[in-house]
Amino acid sequence: MSATRGKGFWAFLLALLVLATACTPSGEAPSTGTSARVQGDGSIPENESISLDDSEHAAIANLDPTLLAAARKAAADARLRGVELKVTSGWRSAAYQQRLLDEAIARYRSEKEALRWVHPPDKSKHVTGEAIDIGPTAAADWLIQHGADYGLCQAYANEMWHFELLTSPGGECPQPISNAIG
Rank of each mutant, 00 (worst) to 15 (best):
N47H: 06
N47W: 02
E48H: 08
E48W: 03
S49G: 04
S49E: 05
S49C: 04
I50N: 02
L52D: 07
D53R: 04
D53I: 00
D54E: 05
D54F: 05
D54S: 09
E56K: 07
E56C: 06
E56A: 13
A58E: 03
A58F: 02
A59H: 07
A59E: 06
A59D: 07
A59P: 10
I60L: 09
I60T: 02
A61C: 03
A61M: 04
N62W: 15
D64N: 14
P65W: 09
P65G: 08
T66Q: 13
T66V: 08
L67T: 10
L68C: 11
L68P: 11
A69R: 09
A69T: 04
A70L: 03
A70Y: 04
A71H: 03
R72W: 06
R72V: 06
K73G: 14
K73Y: 05
A74L: 08
A76L: 05
A76F: 06
A76K: 02
D77P: 09
D77Y: 03
A78Q: 12
A78S: 15
A78T: 11
R79T: 12
R79F: 12
L80S: 08
L80H: 04
L80V: 00
G82L: 01
G82C: 00
V83K: 07
V83M: 05
V83C: 09
L85I: 02
L85H: 04
K86N: 12
K86Y: 05
K86P: 05
V87M: 00
V87Q: 01
T88H: 06
S89I: 00
S89N: 04
W91K: 10
W91N: 12
S93Y: 13
A94P: 13
A94S: 13
A95S: 08
A95G: 09
Y96T: 00
Q97L: 10
Q98N: 01
Q98A: 05
Q98P: 03
R99I: 01
R99V: 02
L100C: 13
L100N: 12
L100A: 10
L101F: 15
D102W: 14
E103A: 14
A104K: 06
I105K: 14
I105E: 15
I105D: 15
A106W: 01
A106T: 04
A106N: 08
A106D: 12
A106C: 03
R107T: 08
R107G: 04
Y108R: 03
Y108T: 05
R109Y: 03
K112P: 02
K112I: 09
E113R: 10
L115V: 07
L115D: 14
R116Y: 14
V118M: 00
H119R: 14
P120A: 14
P121K: 00
D122H: 15
K123L: 11
K123F: 10
K123C: 08
K123Q: 12
S124A: 13
K125H: 11
K125G: 10
K125V: 02
H126F: 06
H126A: 04
H126W: 03
E130R: 15
A131F: 01
A131T: 01
A131Q: 01
I132Q: 09
D133W: 09
D133Q: 14
D133G: 15
D133K: 11
I134H: 11
I134N: 13
P136R: 02
P136V: 01
T137D: 11
T137V: 04
A138W: 08
